[in-house]
């Protein structure tokens, strides 16, 4: 059998935690490219709570309220100090507490180093019945942090989950997407699930009262010292991949324009050779 750097979480059922890993991401819809330099213009781009993570958080809250009354929903994020905003939003939506993992040494992490840091924090948080991640983050789009974190914790991972169908007797049944459609998959808990959004999901905007109440909830910041270990295990140094070059894709196309019904003939003849 393989060795995992972090051993199993204990299978505690009652009064346990449901941990949701959330990331603050730039709104990719709003990203513009500087036409001169070909680089991303980050100024003025709003930061949002990664939509898949927002769904995961709502699922966690629903699980807490429906299946397991004494659980506590903890929102966990690794990021710069501004990421506290996204955690505040989670508290307003209904998380019970929040932890921000923030340290200069955490910067520049790839998916492995991110997973490693999250796994360390999850371990420190103590018995958890469920860990939820988004399917993928809008900035990195790797969908790797969920399954990598699960493996580091020695937990089963259930990916592409749209719905939790059942949670009882130490087992969870999820409806998850597959290449061909869907699958109902049963797994023991504790487990880590990564969430897709469903059609019926409408993010609820927290009201003034919820936002006020969120201010009284606990938001802790943990640094390298809190997690332990050496600098080499985290961030850029703890990463197993490196970015060697970035550039902007050449996506603009010629864009020959035709107008209305009259354009149809011209379009069809332009497409000759393909159709």
């Amino acid at each position: 059998m393989l060795q995992n750097p972090i051993e199993h979480l204990s299978v505690e059922q009652k009064n346990s935690k449901i941990i949701v890993c959330i990331k603050q991401v730039p709104d990719t819809q709003e990203i513009k490219i500087d036409p001169e330099t070909g680089t991303l213009i980050r100024e003025g781009v709003p930061s949002i709570l990664n939509p898949f993570d927002e769904y995961a958080l709502n699922l966690a809250i629903e699980i807490r309220d429906r299946f397991r009354n004494n659980s506590e929903v903890v929102a966990l994020s690794m990021g710069p100090s501004q990421a506290a905003e996204a955690l505040r939003k989670c508290l307003a939506i209904g998380a019970d507490s929040a932890i921000l993992l923030s340290d200069r040494a955490f910067a520049g992490a790839d998916t492995y180093a991110t997973s490693y840091t999250l796994a360390k924090a999850i371990k420190k948080l103590g018995p958890a019945s469920l860990i939820l991640c988004g399917y993928e983050a809008l900035d990195g789009n790797t969908a790797q942090v969920g399954p990598e974190t699960a493996r580091l914790l020695g937990l089963p991972a259930i990916c592409y989950v749209e719905r939790v169908e059942a949670l009882d007797g130490g087992e969870i049944t999820c409806k998850r997407e597959s290449e061909e459609g869907y699958e109902l998959l049963k797994s023991p808990v504790p487990a880590l699930i990564t969430c897709m959004t469903t059609s019926s999901f409408e993010p609820k905007l927290p009201g003034v009262r919820e936002i006020m109440a969120a201010r009284r909830k606990k938001l802790e910041v943990w640094s390298l010292e809190d997690l332990g270990g050496s600098k080499d295990e985290y961030g850029l140094r703890g990463s197993l991949t490196r970015v060697t070059k970035t550039y902007t894709p050449d996506i603009k196309r010629k864009g020959v324009r035709f107008e209305g019904k009259e354009g149809v003939k011209e379009l069809i003849s332009a497409l000759r050779g393909i159709i």
Partner: peptide
């Protein structure tokens, strides 16, 4: 990455 806004090696 970034929703296809940049390409990385």
């Amino acid at each position: 990455a970034f929703g296809g806004n940049i390409i990385a090696d």
